[in-house]
Amino acid sequence: MNEAWKAFLIDLDGTLYHGTHMIPGADELIRRLNEKGIPLLFVTNNSSRTPEDVAVHLEHMGIAAEPDQVCTSAVAAAQYIAEIAPGCRVAAIGEKGLLTALDQAGLQLTHDQPDYVVQGIDRAFTYDKLTEAARWIFGGAQYILTNPDLLLPSQDGLLPGAGTLSAAIRAATGAEPVVIGKPSGILMKFATDRLGLRAQDVAVIGDNMLTDITAGVNAGCGTILTLTGVTTAENLDTFLASTGVKPDMICSDLHELTQLITR
């Protein structure tokens, strides 16, 4: 374990749980980190939930969590815009987590001549919403994408993600969005700033080579891959080749991870 790492940014789905089922050892990992006073943040590309919703979801599975420990792509997107253009006009295509984050950042939600179009997962996405988004962007609005995930895991199988909806908007407009969530380093910087630490003092823990580990590398953080979700022992070599990045550490499960980072 790298002794320079003072805190951890921990992915959620695929790392600590699958849907509503906790991955074995997730509760012990967080408990041990808390007992040792090691700072941590839960960092997720999911823009549909508020930090409060995420914390409740974790608590229901027996994983200790507070809302102020949760960094979502929605909150990071709202912060990103608010720092550039405080109080500007924003049109949102998304769900509760995104709408709440934009409102709490002091941005004006509108459907009339927005300065920014912010898009996340929207399970009520329609042709009319696609038309609106295209017209807003043609009218000069800047396009922000909370996260580029093409697919989402669910208990019933895979679902189209925010990146799939974005593909339609990009095809219609030719516009390339500013991407906030992993593998972009923007969400990672938002999280490390909240911790008050330098990127090199923090390690990212996640199961996805394409998002978690690549984001950590892009942000200059340490990286720990867990073979608990998207990346497995069977497909690891394929992901190493396709991403061109290599995690600093690889753990087969969360019990091994806990032993390594809390011993």
Rank of each mutant, 00 (worst) to 15 (best):
A124Q: 15
Q119V: 06
N208E: 03
R49Y: 14
T231C: 15
M209P: 01
F42G: 01
L107G: 01
E234V: 14
I38M: 14
V178P: 03
A199M: 07
A233L: 13
D253E: 09
P51Q: 12
D237S: 14
L159Y: 03
A172L: 08
T15Y: 02
I144D: 00
L210W: 05
G244A: 07
I10P: 04
E28S: 13
E35D: 15
P114W: 02
G161R: 03
G181E: 13
G14F: 09
I137L: 15
K189C: 05
K189T: 15
T164Q: 01
A168G: 02
T231L: 07
T50K: 11
K182L: 10
C88R: 07
A4Y: 08
H255I: 12
D237L: 09
L187W: 03
A162F: 00
A4V: 08
L165T: 01
C88I: 09
H111N: 11
M249G: 00
V70E: 04
G206N: 06
P67A: 10
L98M: 11
G140F: 02
V54P: 00
A4M: 11
I213E: 00
T232E: 09
E176P: 03
R89T: 10
D11W: 03
D237V: 05
P247T: 12
V217F: 01
S73D: 13
S184Y: 10
M188R: 06
D13I: 09
Q104G: 00
F42P: 06
V179P: 06
D68N: 14
L210F: 04
T126P: 06
V90E: 05
A77R: 11
V179N: 07
R198Y: 02
M249T: 09
E83A: 13
D11C: 03
K96F: 03
S47V: 10
I121V: 15
G163P: 01
P39K: 14
G163E: 03
G19M: 05
P86M: 11
I81V: 15
D53T: 06
G157F: 08
I186S: 10
T223F: 01
C221E: 06
G87S: 11
T146V: 04
D237M: 08
D156I: 09
T262D: 11
D122A: 02
G37C: 10
L236R: 11
H57Q: 14
G157D: 04
L58Y: 05
Q69H: 14
R89V: 10
G62L: 08
L98F: 05
T243C: 15
H21P: 00
P148A: 05
A64M: 13
V43F: 11
G181F: 00
P148F: 01
T50R: 11
D128C: 08
L159F: 11
A76V: 14
V245L: 02
D115V: 01
R123G: 00
E83S: 12
G222E: 07
R49A: 13
T214G: 01
L165S: 03
T173L: 10
H18F: 12
Q69Y: 08
T258S: 12
A76R: 13
T131P: 00
G163Y: 00
L240Q: 05
G174R: 12
A64L: 13
E83R: 15
G220A: 10
H255E: 08
A167F: 00
I250K: 10
H21Y: 07
V90F: 10
A241P: 01
L40I: 14
I84C: 02
I10F: 05
G163V: 03
C71T: 07
N34Y: 08
D248E: 14
A74S: 15
V43T: 15
L159G: 00
G216R: 00
G62E: 10
I30G: 10
V70G: 06
